[in-house]
Design a protein around this nucleic acid. Sequence first.
DNA 1: GTCTTGCTTAGCCATATTGCTAAGTATCAC
DNA 2: GTGATACTTAGCAATATGGCTAAGCAAGAC
Lengths: 113, 113
Amino acid sequence: MAKQDPDLSLLFHALSDPTRRAMLERLAQGPAGVTELAGPSGLRLPTILRHLAVLEAAGLLTSAKDGRVRSCALNPAALDPMRGWLDDQRAQWEARFDRLDDYVTRLMKDRPE
Amino acid sequence: MAKQDPDLSLLFHALSDPTRRAMLERLAQGPAGVTELAGPSGLRLPTILRHLAVLEAAGLLTSAKDGRVRSCALNPAALDPMRGWLDDQRAQWEARFDRLDDYVTRLMKDRPE
DNA sequence: GTCTTGCTTAGCCATATTGCTAAGTATCAC
DNA sequence: GTGATACTTAGCAATATGGCTAAGCAAGAC
């Protein structure tokens, strides 16, 4: 991960819109141009460009212009900080049960027969 | 997962705010009351209540009133659909290289010596 | 019963977001 | 060179979001 402090807020926000998620899903198959990404959504191109800007600002995609075509590509590494955060919470939650187990086990052991 | 179609938009949006993430992080340690959750943020209680409503609407937490205290608890299962979505994109991305490997392998095999 | 504590509701305001249309630029195909 | 294609920019409007203050309700402590 290149960035020291990934902006989780930008990342999660970027994924909070169904159109943006759908575009990323398409890009997971391979690069695509703006018009192709716009197709399924039914939204107008300026709107799509705005959504793409959100995704690019979050680091989830990169784009490059080749002639009149702008090709967009998924940056899968950008998904990792979010997964990391989710995993951390899950881990903390699981640790709760471990601590509870320890507590109950200790209680049983200390319990006078 | 109880819900047939988790609302990914609600879920990702709920995590797009640092205050809300911080509160979930705290709840991963165990249930907490509203005033305790508000403490670290420095925000006023009505604002906190609004944030909690977002989290509850997304299914990420549950709350119950006991006397004058409202206790909030993390619902860790609600994190799973997001992880699932992230994993799916990662999987699709990896599959790209598998398909590329197959293609290149086939190319080398079909290549006249 | 009175005071304190822990929320809760209502309303306001500033900012952000999300969609659109209109107009424009640049590349490509013929 | 002309027309088509693929964006791109600017501006507008409606809605949503995120913060606040003020006022209120209910439970708990004494």
